[in-house]
Amino acid sequence: MARLRFPLIMAVALFLAGLALMAALKDRHYMLLSLVLLGAALLPVFLRLERRRLESRELVLLAVLSAIAAVSRIPFAALPSVKPVSAIIMLSAYVFGAEAGFIIGAVAALVSNIYFGQGPWTPWQMFAWGMAGLSTGWLRNSWWMRKRAGMLLFGFLWGFLFGWIMNIWYIISLPDAFSWGLVAAAYASSFYFDLAHAVSNVFFLAVLAGGWTSVLERFRRKYGLLKE
């Protein structure tokens, strides 16, 4: 059974992909197609993780940061839509790079939903937070990201981007109503949440940037972790 599992899962995945493609072409069932596309987006990074030789300390580090990001929802439970998860993921990515950022983001989403409840939003959250980490990691050496203002702006942008990505799965369920009007309506309805997210990102990044990067850098130096 154990040996069969991998090919079995691959076969099921391929089957689902084909089915989704067919469904999308035939009846415009974009929901299924979008899931398959999401899977395709998440797969390469996780495949790389599987292939890569990871020291035990590095693996623990990734797990700790993911869990910290997930737990960080707790002290702010009293303040609605103020969640430092994105900021923590972006800072981790800033220090440890794109790949680590993506994994921390995706795993944080998956793990926190084990407690808050999985739903159709899980893969989208994994994707959105993963991408937040990935993009921060990619851009961390650019001149404007090195500047404080650039980083804060980036965090602000991701506040909105996150909300927009999370809107997609909702919009996709109405392929025929798709119009700029619908998009505008969906995005207008989530505007205040997104704004709060964006502003709290800026705040958290501004507060955290110094302290947290120095903590993370200290560990990186002290133990030579995750050198790219």
Binding site: A2, R3, R5, F6, I9, M10, F46, L49, E50, L54, L59, V60, L62, A63, V64, S66, A67, A70, I103, V107, A108, L110, V111, I114
Partner: peptide
């Protein structure tokens, strides 16, 4: 079986 490292990582995060 399909993704042992990812599974391990996730389990560790769950433990934490």
């Amino acid at each position: 079986a399909a993704a042992p490292k990812t599974a391990l990582l996730t389990l560790m995060a769950i433990r934490f």
